[in-house]
Design a protein around this nucleic acid. Structure first.
Lengths: 99, 99
DNA sequence: TAAATATTTAAATAGTTCTTTAATTATCAT
DNA sequence: ATGATAATTAAAGAACTATTTAAATATTTA
């Protein structure tokens, strides 16, 4: 059931969906306006993101509201840490530039 | 020429190669021992990682030494920041625990 | 219950990716 | 140059992905 986070992130439109949902929750029909594809294609991508636990859905009347799932970032974060977490100079710099 | 970093990271064996190379540089034949595939398959994955600028190669006699490219992490880092960079608490904590 | 709206799922297809074996290129040592 | 070693590339096929149109499901409203 739980799909690969990495495969989910590997596609441009899906990463774009995530960035859009980070701005604010949206319905599929609303999201579809931002893309040059069909609603059906967006719906499929939403399913893939949901299977990877990157987003959540909640029914709201006849609509379905999609939102970022703030939890399940773990797998990608873990790889990121293992891979590049050591390079503390740059990371520390980045963190501090935000403070 | 430059392939997608995300597609490159989307495959298990390739992420494994990156983690192995992070330990220390390796030759293709050496890497292949860690996998249940052919040398040709490893070689293809190395090309994909190189096209994504995630690794570097340097010839060393008849062999080719592969190593992590510490630079080009930018694209994935940028997305990571945009998407989850807000959660600075955890990131900062991690950085400081290493100091 | 029937019509309207919102979204998902199915079927089909085109395109991409991964893996394998076999052939090829490159370097080194004699 | 020849033979040996190291690695890449080519060709072929299987497996997977993404997109589309059309049909199906779920919910609301009349």
């Amino acid at each position: 059931m739980t799909g690969s986070v990495w495969k989910a992130l590997a596609e441009d439109n899906r990463r774009q969906i995530l960035l859009l949902l980070r701005e604010h929750d949206m319905f599929p029909s609303e999201l579809a306006k931002h893309f040059d594809t069909t609603l059906a294609a967006v719906s499929t991508n939403l399913r893939i993101l949901k299977d990877a636990d990157l987003i959540k859905e909640t029914r709201e009347g006849q609509k379905k509201r999609y939102s970022i799932n703030p939890k399940k970032t773990l797998e990608i974060k873990e790889f990121f840490d293992k891979m590049w977490g050591h390079n503390l100079e740059g990371l520390k710099e980045f963190v501090e530039s935000k403070e």
